[in-house]
Design a protein around this nucleic acid. Structure first.
Lengths: 345, 345
DNA sequence: GTTAGCACTCTCGTGCTGAGAGTGCTATTC
DNA sequence: GAATAGCACTCTCAGCACGAGAGTGCTAAC
């Protein structure tokens, strides 16, 4: 990729910024008039020609202005990744909202999704943090009626999973409580590996419950297994590039089918570290549905303990200047909250 | 509203059925040719004129076919409400899916939403059942770290709510367990009213927890307070009436903003009984966003114990013949499952 | 290296036209 | 008297031509 002169750089960024705002191909004349660059439209035309040659811009048709290519957006994003900070006032507003909400992971996730969608005017997704290796903390067995038993399993760090199980025959609450307290004594603090390695229990009920516990712990140990929260699905429908509804449908469908979404997030974030953002532009050739979209992603949480993923989907023409700092800020906020939850404030 | 002759009735139903399929205004000639009614197009024209006069049909413009009015759809729906049954094979498929899934309310809700959306090609919504008057069953207090305590509250019937609370100062797990077991002895089986009426506890911790329990119980006692599950949001985007994306956006937005959705469902289902369907056509003048949509709703569950709401949103032109029996069948299925859960299988 | 000028290209909105579909009305038939 | 055939009328819609406008690339002058 050839070097850009300082002037080409300025011009390219200007063009992209203008296009993001106006959604219209930007022409040399418009550029010369609206921004006070001391250059004539003819000069700009020459430079635009060069930028087009280099693959940063393209023309929808012979006599139209220029539109950024994916490569162009990539350059744009790489330039703004570093400096962009969310304005103080917005930071305060967001942080305020979090501290006002009920101190509960569920609420935080919902709020995070809502904030991301609102600030970026895109579709947000937040995956709840999960422990990379769950450690057993506590189990409760509560008989509901007859043979149905509610099992509430708590991991170190406060992750909770519940399940209703049906026993072969009715068992008294008393006996259930005894079983639970036996298991609590036995398993406290153990990761699933260690539990799996334990010798078989003599008591059949103990053994059954143990198996279920293990099953539950493994289920929650998958990297992107946390619950998914999304918001702002409708935001994307107002964008002009999605007015032909078929494109929009395909992108939204991806967000509705949780398994595909998980796959996407898993593949793109596995080797990124907390605090680092990833920007996926135009599906990167791999996601046909996202040909016209970009996604800004971040991992959050406490590495080695509990991590999750969050991000925003928008048209390729989305306001990166707003979205990137927002995603970064919210990821930081959630990381702090997760950290507090784990270390006990 | 004037009486319809038998012939007008047949014709009206035929026109609506055709329009639902084709999404095109239906003309007299087409009708005469495609369906073997032994009537000429001229006769049909006369009858169509009469039906238009009566308010069941209307013409988009002078020289177009007829399109059903809301009144027309209402008549259509009222005619088919009774006889429509879901084909045996589909019933079996659905029932099979439910019995294969994990026996857990969360799974059932997700599945119900998915089935409804798939079968009707519309947007589905399912609100989890909730007890109309929660009765206390059991509380667990689990210290996580430091001053953070996880409270798991179980109601009679298996409804669970969990909350993390932060105490003024650290309390040992032992003391938490004692508190929990004291409260369990004291509150077992009581509804929130009775708990509110109890005298103040001498122990400060007891009293604090008690207040929180009460707060939680009241929160879950609101008629449509159950968790909301939706699916098929993108289905509606492929319908031709929503190709201008603004209309679609407004309808989908309603489904994304849970509070408005709750309001809608609460208002329309309060006085309907289990098993009875409600069909809301064109927003019924009250919901501007739904001017072009219809909603088929049903309540399910066990009256007086735990009930929920489910339904499907689609264009006014949706396939009622498919949607109505599906909604009815799924509502019945969930009612049975809820009943089993409550009575202990 | 920069700029002014110019010929060229392409899109887009507008207005026109003819084909097609559907209607309402009237005269005619059974 | 109900049903039908025929006909004039209305309206939409696709297709086409046309001109305005915007933008370009190139060349020649500064």
């Amino acid at each position: 990729m050839p070097e850009l002169t300082e002037r080409q750089k300025t011009l390219l960024l200007l063009i992209i910024r203008d296009y993001i705002e106006s959604a219209q191909p930007v022409g040399s004349k418009r550029l010369a008039e609206h921004y006070h660059i001391n250059l004539s439209s003819a000069t700009i035309r020459n430079e635009m020609g060069a930028l087009t040659e280099m693959g940063y811009l393209r023309q929808p048709h012979t006599s139209a202005g220029r539109v950024p290519t994916e490569e162009g957006y990539r350059y744009f994003v790489s330039q703004m990744m570093h400096n962009a900070e969310l304005p103080e006032t917005i930071q305060q507003t967001i942080s305020h909202q979090f501290h006002q909400s009920r101190a509960d992971m569920n609420q935080w996730m919902t709020l995070a999704a809502s904030v991301l969608a609102y600030q970026s005017q895109g579709v947000s997704v937040v995956i709840a943090p999960h422990a990379e290796q769950s450690r057993y903390k506590h189990v409760e067995l509560i008989s509901t009626q007859g043979r149905q038993v509610l099992m509430v399993l708590v991991m170190v760090g406060g992750e909770v999973s519940q399940q209703i199980l049906t026993l072969a025959e009715p068992v008294s609450q008393e006996r259930l409580s005894q079983t639970a307290s036996r298991l609590n004594g036995l398993l406290a603090g153990l990761p699933s590996d260690a539990i799996a390695a334990l010798p078989t229990r003599s008591d059949a009920l103990d053994q059954d419950i143990l198996t279920l516990i293990l099953q539950d712990m493994r289920r929650t140990a998958d990297p992107v297994s946390g619950e998914i929260y999304t918001d702002g699905l409708t935001n994307v429908l107002s964008e002009p590039e999605f007015s032909d509804s078929d494109e929009a449908r395909r992108a939204l469908k991806l967000f509705e089918e949780r398994s595909t979404l998980r796959d996407l997030l898993a593949r793109t974030t596995t080797n990124s570290n907390i605090g680092g953002l990833q920007v996926l532009i135009g599906g990167e050739g791999e996601w046909e549905e996202l040909r016209q979209c970009s996604i800004v992603l971040a991992r959050y949480g406490v590495p080695g303990m509990a991590t999750g993923t969050l991000g925003v989907l928008g048209p390729m023409r989305m306001s990166y200047a707003k979205t990137i700092p927002t995603v970064r800020y919210v990821a930081g906020l959630l990381s702090d909250l997760v950290n507090d939850t784990i270390t006990g404030e």
